[in-house]
């Protein structure tokens, strides 16, 4: 498995890719904050919030279908929770749209609200990670607020996820070839313990090798990086537009009505 399986669009070229990772990170953070600050019955007020993630995806040349697939894969758990709320919240709320007006239970509005917010949140996050290489995102986090040590850990984590997933698949295949499917439950459990245990031992040895190799290349506890971040005029414009847009979505909506 290639390590850029999930974020394969991040290496592309587009106006959104060229934006500074710090700006994008802050913008998506602000977007998420504004998104969850909407009232839980105000589904229709969320309409204007669709614009930013879609615009980022379109300008970033990320297929919207890819982002929507992420929403569908991750959706079930949150939808299950959201669908509980109609059982409890039966207060009626008027829904008025142009000439149509009808009343609906608040619980259904809340469920729809949670579902829409979830979808928009995932779209915005996907739009960011699909237009920013993970290394630049880490660099941005380090420059903004995150301790160096944690950022380095994240770097290793990202680098080795797919290496170790491949390793786990190999061990799992070996287990399955040896007829684990026919074993009684206790044996199966022991076999799974053995698989994970040997994966742990191999990981331990691998991390020792990596550490020695890093030492050989002059690592003394301080990361060295050639920062590729550049906060230019385009990024200033992007941030100003984002803030104005979010403020408009959040504050000006009652004025339009």
């Amino acid at each position: 498995m290639h390590h850029a399986y999930i974020d394969r669009f991040a290496q592309g070229h587009s106006p959104v890719h060229r934006l500074d990772a710090r700006g994008k990170l802050l913008a998506v953070l602000a977007y998420s904050g504004v998104l969850i600050s909407f009232n839980r019955y105000a589904v229709s007020e969320l309409a204007a919030m669709v614009v930013m993630p879609l615009a980022m995806l379109w300008f970033g040349r990320v297929p919207v279908g890819f982002a929507l697939r992420r929403v569908i894969i991750l959706g079930p758990f949150i939808l299950m929770l959201a669908m509980i709320s109609p059982l409890y919240d039966t207060s009626l709320h008027p829904v008025v749209l142009g000439p149509w007006r009808f009343a609906i239970a608040g619980g259904f509005l809340t469920a729809a609200d949670v579902a829409v917010k979830f979808a928009l949140g995932v779209l915005a996050l996907t739009a960011m990670t699909c237009t920013t290489p993970f290394a630049l995102l880490l660099e941005a986090m380090r420059k903004l607020f995150m301790p160096k040590l944690l950022v380095m850990q994240l770097g290793f984590l990202y680098r080795y996820i797919f290496v170790l997933i491949d390793e786990a698949m190999r061990i799992r295949r070996a287990r399955d070839f040896r007829g684990a499917a026919a074993a009684p439950p206790g044996r199966k459990l022991a076999a799974a313990g053995g698989v994970i245990g040997s994966l742990f031992v191999r990981t331990l040895e691998r991390s020792e090798r990596i550490h020695v190799a890093m030492g050989a290349r002059g690592y003394r506890g301080e990361p060295h990086s050639l920062s590729r971040l550049h906060f230019g005029p385009g990024d200033v414009v992007f941030l100003i537009v984002t803030v104005a847009y979010l403020a408009a979505c959040r504050l000006a909506y009652p004025l339009i009505l």
Binding site: Q153, L157, Y160
Partner: peptide, 8 residues
């Protein structure tokens, strides 16, 4: 930092 490998 190599602990990150344990996360993986």
């Amino acid at each position: 930092p190599v602990m990150g490998v344990m996360g993986a």
